[in-house]
């Protein structure tokens, strides 16, 4: 041990660096003590709030569907919906709905659909809030993920395409809860 030599001040510098790095990383743990609505996540320092959320048996997910001229709804391909990553898009869409910008978001997507030759059958873009039962979706096996009920949040027509027939609200609600609502 005696043959180990240090540059003056080096050990203090190391200790300061260690304390600063670990202290900064540990600091966000204090968020757990704040009221839930006041908790704020950050980067690169985080308290990993995704693990704090209570996970229930059903989940509501805001997502986007395309409607054809007959009124049937279809999932849109990832290339149309996602600019960066699925979670980025999901976050941006949730935020748009929260901030009252859902209609604007739907218009942007409708323009993208209009320029996609493979989506010529889609005449309207709908932003919806679907409720999914986890057991129903996962225990039935692949391809069975469908909402148990669905509520429209905003929609935008695809330019220059005929629109599906308008239905009364009650009928639309019944149709929304049917199994044929989402066609994969």
């Amino acid at each position: 041990m005696n043959d180990v030599s240090w540059v003056p001040g080096e050990r203090r510098r190391i200790a300061t660096l260690g304390a600063a790095v670990l202290g900064a990383m540990l600091y966000p743990v204090l968020q757990n003590l704040r009221p839930r609505k006041e908790q704020v996540d950050g980067f690169p320092l985080s308290y990993y709030p995704m693990f704090r959320q209570l996970r229930k048996q059903t989940v509501r997910i805001i997502h986007v569907l395309g409607t054809d001229v007959a009124g049937d709804r279809h999932r849109l391909p990832t290339e149309i919906l996602v600019e960066d990553a699925i979670n980025t898009t999901r976050h941006q869409l949730n935020r748009a709905v929260r901030e009252g910008r859902a209609a604007e978001y739907a218009v942007t997507l409708a323009k993208k659909v209009a320029s996609a030759p493979a989506l010529g059958h889609i005449v309207r873009v709908d932003i919806v809030r679907g409720r999914f039962d986890l057991d129903v979706c996962l225990l039935a096996g692949p391809g069975q993920i469908r909402p148990t009920d669905i509520v429209e949040v905003a929609s935008a027509p695809v330019a220059d395409r005929p629109q599906p027939p308008v239905v009364e609200d009650d009928d639309a609600g019944d149709q929304a809860s049917s199994d044929s609502e989402v066609v994969s």
Partner: peptide
């Protein structure tokens, strides 16, 4: 549940649930 929710989100955004999750 977290795994299931994550899978459902992926599915409705045009991706797929991992077969191992099922």
């Amino acid at each position: 549940r977290q795994v299931a929710i994550d899978g459902i989100r992926k599915e409705v955004y045009g991706s797929r649930v991992a077969p191992a999750a099922y």
